[in-house]
């Protein structure tokens, strides 16, 4: 097995992804031993059914990709995803509230989700493409205070994906056991290795197979 495989959340989030696409995603994740498949909440049940008796986990995105869903709706979507078999949750932080400097709102948004899934992994997507340097640090601090298990760079639907600078800034805010997931624009082994060497614990990518085969993918995520 490639040393990369357990770093990878094998990801398919585009609106037009079909059931067949999700089934294929699960087959690939089993074949290559990826850590998880990352899907929209409507496909959690289908993914779970196709990953029975495998170690591959199901990761669901919440409030995705804008983060502008009301807090209780994010909580509701999370409960639904966990009931359907999700073991990890990637929620988008409320970027608008962060930009409004409503830090209490942002904290409460994340904390409300974490509170209903204390024993499962919560990743908080900061969507760094829209954030200034001090926003990235503030968002990281709020996510960590709220109990996030991971802070994650990008949705793949913003203006750009992860950058080396994002990771460095996020690392500077990390305390204790919080980890970092880099996502968006990771299409080859060289980029994956760069982030892993920076201390990233997980990679979100649609190009997992290309990465572990040493090729470059033409996917946007």
């Amino acid at each position: 097995m490639s040393p990369f495989n357990k770093f990878i959340d094998h990801t398919l989030l585009k609106a037009t992804a079909t059931k067949q696409d999700i089934i294929q995603l699960c087959e690939e994740a089993k074949q290559f031993g990826f850590f998880s498949v990352c899907v929209n909440s409507c496909y959690v049940s289908l993914a779970k059914a196709n990953l029975e008796r495998s170690e591959v986990k199901v990761c669901a995105v919440i409030g995705f990709p804008l983060g502008a869903m009301s807090t209780v709706s994010k909580v509701s979507e999370t409960i639904d995803a966990i009931e359907n078999g999700a073991e990890e949750i990637d929620m988008v932080l409320n970027v608008g509230w962060l930009k409004s400097k409503d830090y209490q709102g942002v904290l409460n948004d994340i904390k409300s989700v974490k509170d209903i899934m204390p024993n499962k992994t919560l990743k908080v997507i900061l969507e760094t493409c829209y954030l200034e340097d001090d926003d990235i640090i503030k968002a990281s601090e709020l996510a960590i205070e709220a109990g996030a298990d991971f802070i994650k760079t990008s949705t793949g639907f913003g203006t750009r994906g992860a950058s080396e600078k994002d990771i460095t800034l996020m690392k500077s805010a990390i305390e204790g056991t919080t980890k970092i997931k880099a996502s968006g624009g990771i299409r080859d082994a060289q980029t994956a290795l760069k982030y892993i060497n920076l201390g990233v614990h997980r990679l979100g990518t649609s190009s997992g197979i290309a990465i572990i085969s040493g090729k470059t993918s033409d996917s946007n995520y």
Binding site: L13, A15, S41, Y43, S73, E77, D80
Partner: peptide, 11 residues
């Protein structure tokens, strides 16, 4: 369910 339409019906 905005903008992807890919949230569950109950959500």
């Amino acid at each position: 369910g905005f903008p992807l339409g890919a949230a569950t019906t109950s959500t």
